[in-house]
Lab assay of single mutants.
Amino acid sequence: MDPFVVLVLCLSCLLLLSIWRQSSGRGKLPPGPTPLPVIGNILQIDIKDVSKSLTNLSKIYGPVFTLYFGLERMVVLHGYEVVKEALIDLGEEFSGRGHFPLAERANRGFGIVFSNGKRWKEIRRFSLMTLRNFGMGKRSIEDRVQEEARCLVEELRKTKASPCDPTFILGCAPCNVICSIIFQKRFDYKDQQFLNLMEKLNENIRIVSTPWIQICNNFPTIIDYFPGTHNKLLKNLAFMESDILEKVKEHQESMDINNPRDFIDCFLIKMEKEKQNQQSEFTIENLVITAADLLGAGTETTSTTLRYALLLLLKHPEVTAKVQEEIERVIGRNRSPCMQDRGHMPYTDAVVHEVQRYIDLIPTSLPHAVTCDVKFRNYLIPKGTTILTSLTSVLHDNKEFPNPEMFDPRHFLDEGGNFKKSNYFMPFSAGKRICVGEGLARMELFLFLTFILQNFNLKSLIDPKDLDTTPVVNGFASVPPFYQLCFIPV
């Protein structure tokens, strides 16, 4: 058959498939802009700032609406009420993970971030239990974070109060905490193996944040037939998995079943207990991918939040002064901060919360999916439909947070200066898919920041009023603009 005829037939089939998918069930789905064949609503979305586009569309179609990214149908949730109703009140029905062709290629359905069903539930339950087990290797997770915080302070001392970009050092600290939990080992910041790991993690975040990856996920045929950065992403992930597998083999040879040292040991012990169960989800494949998931999810998000926190503290020296006064009063100079201190430091706690609220790190979270046909607000959402959640619409709700575009710790303080919780605080998402490392991340943010401010004054290279804190939105995360500062020993 003539190649031209084959091409026309293929394009015609794709067009018909697109029209059929977009028209099927439209009477039951939430409203939304009319999609174009094949490309859907992509032309109506700013790929570099999806969150802003969703906010604009919500003003037209309401808090629940339908979009098509290519052939992929998505239902968008915008605003606290619908997000709570879906992710919390109907948590089980909305607990699936959205379709990610690239991740599915890399992870093969294993791990904790992109798995679904029984596998996801069992691996998540085990990971939560293990991360909360403060007795691994007779050292609590808090001990590990405190140790890394001391190392971080010593690295900052080496800058000798000269101007520096904190990106690298602030990236090393949370990565080392995860390494300590998974591998029972922290690395020197100049260790070549550690630097290679950091390089792969950072490069992957840069790649994932590009519009090209959005295109690959919406048109998965590209993955096999086109060159691009997605190939580098898959190569980096394969490198990390190979490295983790080597460490798993080392653990198998040296493990003491009665004295687990780290996450890998705990997983291997669980595998041993379930070795007679042919349906067990505790396999080497799941261990390797879960460890890679924890490394990827637990490094860049925390380091970016820390980097943004220091920029905001530079911009608002009056806030920094209040935090340091609270540190001096509650902790002093002669001991290290600990998590028990947080309950006695409402202002510092409010500042950490406000940093996370203000920066809105992951504006749309990772997409969910419905696990069955769901009736939601008089609409029928078919099983498997991807759910896109606007966390921006919750964290920047102007009824809950007056002047949401302003950095103001009073958003989390009552009139008496006591810490005030808010149900709208969802930087880790909400419901059954809430970030498994939430507790660890909150511990790291509090301890790293208090250790830094206990030991250093922060000095800006320019007038604080002239510092730009506008986030650089890159399609996946909101990151701070480049800046330098000086760490002046107190």
Rank of each mutant, 00 (worst) to 15 (best):
residue 265 D to P: 00
residue 293 D to T: 05
residue 183 F to Q: 06
residue 150 R to Y: 12
residue 313 L to V: 04
residue 58 S to G: 07
residue 117 G to D: 07
residue 100 F to R: 08
residue 394 V to A: 06
residue 374 V to K: 03
residue 140 S to W: 10
residue 424 Y to R: 08
residue 21 R to K: 13
residue 426 M to L: 14
residue 96 G to S: 08
residue 79 G to M: 00
residue 211 P to H: 09
residue 83 V to N: 05
residue 386 T to K: 15
residue 125 R to H: 15
residue 64 V to D: 02
residue 428 F to G: 02
residue 320 T to K: 09
residue 7 L to D: 00
residue 76 V to D: 01
residue 35 P to M: 04
residue 358 Y to L: 09
residue 82 V to I: 09
residue 382 P to R: 06
residue 168 F to C: 06
residue 99 H to V: 11
residue 41 N to V: 00
residue 39 I to S: 03
residue 43 L to A: 09
residue 252 Q to G: 07
residue 114 F to Q: 09
residue 398 N to L: 10
residue 14 L to W: 15
residue 198 M to P: 00
residue 20 W to Y: 08
residue 32 G to M: 00
residue 474 N to Y: 08
residue 74 M to S: 07
residue 72 E to F: 04
residue 65 F to M: 11
residue 311 L to R: 03
residue 270 K to C: 09
residue 52 K to Y: 07
residue 95 S to E: 14
residue 410 R to P: 03
residue 228 G to S: 04
residue 225 Y to T: 10
residue 343 G to Y: 14
residue 483 Y to R: 04
residue 462 I to V: 11
residue 464 P to V: 11
residue 285 E to Q: 11
residue 56 N to L: 11
residue 338 C to A: 11
residue 317 P to F: 05
residue 213 I to W: 12
residue 258 N to C: 09
residue 175 C to M: 08
residue 65 F to G: 01
residue 217 N to H: 14
residue 75 V to E: 00
residue 163 P to T: 10
residue 245 L to E: 10
residue 417 G to I: 06
residue 460 S to P: 05
residue 409 P to Y: 03
residue 136 M to R: 14
residue 484 Q to F: 05
residue 275 K to I: 04
residue 10 C to V: 15
residue 471 P to Q: 15
residue 54 L to T: 02
residue 21 R to D: 06
residue 389 T to K: 01
residue 23 S to P: 13
residue 485 L to E: 01
residue 167 T to A: 14
residue 143 D to S: 12
residue 490 V to G: 07
residue 193 Q to V: 13
residue 301 T to L: 09
residue 339 M to C: 15
residue 327 I to P: 00
residue 316 H to L: 05
residue 407 F to P: 00
residue 296 G to T: 14
residue 427 P to R: 01
residue 98 G to T: 10
residue 278 Q to V: 14
residue 366 L to T: 04
residue 125 R to G: 11
residue 186 R to I: 01
residue 328 E to Q: 12
residue 186 R to C: 04
residue 484 Q to R: 15
residue 139 R to K: 14
residue 293 D to H: 05
residue 92 E to M: 08
residue 432 K to H: 14
residue 305 T to P: 01
residue 327 I to M: 06
residue 22 Q to M: 10
residue 410 R to C: 11
residue 178 I to D: 00
residue 129 M to W: 00
residue 5 V to H: 15
residue 178 I to S: 05
residue 27 G to L: 14
residue 7 L to N: 00
residue 288 V to I: 12
residue 35 P to N: 06
residue 366 L to D: 00
residue 320 T to L: 12
residue 107 N to L: 10
residue 312 L to S: 02
residue 45 I to L: 14
residue 479 V to Q: 15
residue 386 T to G: 07
residue 142 E to K: 04
residue 474 N to I: 07
residue 340 Q to W: 08
residue 481 P to D: 06
residue 113 V to H: 05
residue 396 H to V: 03
residue 233 L to A: 07
residue 91 G to C: 10
residue 23 S to L: 10
residue 77 L to G: 00
residue 228 G to I: 04
residue 416 G to L: 15
residue 84 K to L: 06
residue 91 G to A: 13
residue 152 L to C: 04
residue 34 T to H: 13
residue 69 F to C: 09
residue 297 A to C: 06
residue 265 D to G: 02
residue 281 E to P: 14
residue 83 V to H: 04
residue 333 R to T: 14
residue 393 S to D: 03
residue 415 E to F: 08
residue 205 I to A: 15
residue 322 K to T: 14
residue 283 T to W: 02
residue 473 V to E: 12
residue 141 I to Y: 15
residue 277 N to P: 07
residue 204 N to G: 07
residue 282 F to V: 03
residue 353 H to D: 03
residue 94 F to H: 01
residue 251 H to F: 00
residue 239 F to W: 13
residue 91 G to L: 01
residue 324 Q to L: 06
residue 327 I to S: 01
residue 62 G to S: 01
residue 246 E to P: 06
residue 272 E to S: 08
residue 259 N to K: 13
residue 223 I to L: 13
residue 22 Q to S: 10
residue 394 V to R: 02
residue 319 V to Q: 05
residue 161 A to S: 13
residue 287 L to S: 01
residue 30 P to T: 01
residue 271 M to C: 08
residue 242 S to M: 11
residue 170 L to M: 14
residue 431 G to I: 02
residue 180 S to H: 08
residue 276 Q to I: 12
residue 259 N to R: 11
residue 247 K to L: 12
residue 322 K to F: 08
residue 182 I to Q: 01
residue 392 T to M: 03
residue 182 I to L: 12
residue 174 P to L: 08
residue 409 P to W: 02
residue 394 V to G: 03
residue 373 D to K: 06
residue 413 L to Y: 08
residue 309 A to N: 01
residue 109 G to H: 14
residue 308 Y to S: 08
residue 216 C to Y: 15
residue 439 G to Q: 13
residue 57 L to R: 02
residue 188 D to R: 10
residue 371 T to P: 05
residue 326 E to A: 01
residue 196 N to K: 15
residue 318 E to H: 10
residue 47 I to E: 06
residue 97 R to A: 03
residue 261 R to Y: 02
residue 226 F to P: 04
residue 447 L to T: 15
residue 290 T to Q: 02
residue 88 I to K: 05
residue 312 L to K: 01
residue 343 G to R: 08
residue 421 K to F: 11
residue 130 T to E: 05
residue 212 W to M: 06
residue 63 P to W: 00
residue 109 G to R: 09
residue 249 K to L: 12
residue 245 L to V: 11
residue 423 N to S: 12
residue 388 L to R: 04
residue 203 E to T: 09
residue 357 R to I: 00
residue 165 D to C: 06
residue 18 S to W: 15
residue 427 P to I: 03
residue 175 C to Y: 06
residue 287 L to Q: 00
residue 475 G to I: 10
residue 187 F to S: 08
residue 113 V to Q: 13
residue 94 F to S: 02
residue 449 L to G: 02
residue 39 I to C: 08
residue 436 V to E: 02
residue 42 I to T: 09
residue 362 I to C: 08
residue 3 P to C: 10
residue 129 M to G: 13
residue 376 F to D: 00
residue 55 T to F: 10
residue 49 D to A: 13
residue 298 G to H: 03
residue 477 A to Q: 15
residue 416 G to C: 14
residue 178 I to A: 07
residue 251 H to V: 01
residue 130 T to Q: 15
residue 366 L to H: 05
residue 283 T to L: 07
residue 138 K to A: 13
residue 109 G to Y: 06
residue 210 T to N: 14
residue 52 K to W: 06
residue 287 L to D: 00
residue 118 K to T: 13
residue 16 L to G: 11
residue 460 S to I: 06
residue 228 G to M: 05
residue 260 P to I: 06
residue 436 V to A: 12
residue 363 P to E: 02
residue 250 E to T: 09
residue 133 N to R: 10
residue 8 V to M: 12
residue 225 Y to F: 13
residue 383 K to L: 05
residue 217 N to V: 08
residue 230 H to F: 08
residue 400 E to C: 05
residue 390 S to N: 07
residue 359 I to H: 02
residue 79 G to F: 00
residue 89 D to G: 09
residue 247 K to Q: 12
residue 385 T to V: 04
residue 176 N to V: 00
residue 386 T to E: 01
residue 457 N to T: 14
residue 10 C to G: 12
residue 362 I to Y: 13
residue 48 K to C: 09
residue 233 L to Q: 04
residue 366 L to F: 11
residue 90 L to N: 13
residue 176 N to R: 04
residue 250 E to R: 11
residue 469 T to E: 14
residue 33 P to T: 00
residue 168 F to R: 13
residue 419 F to S: 04
residue 103 A to V: 12
residue 435 C to L: 03
residue 419 F to C: 07
residue 404 P to A: 14
residue 311 L to V: 09
residue 119 R to I: 07
residue 151 C to P: 02
residue 135 G to E: 15
residue 464 P to Y: 13
residue 122 E to W: 04
residue 393 S to V: 01
residue 63 P to D: 11
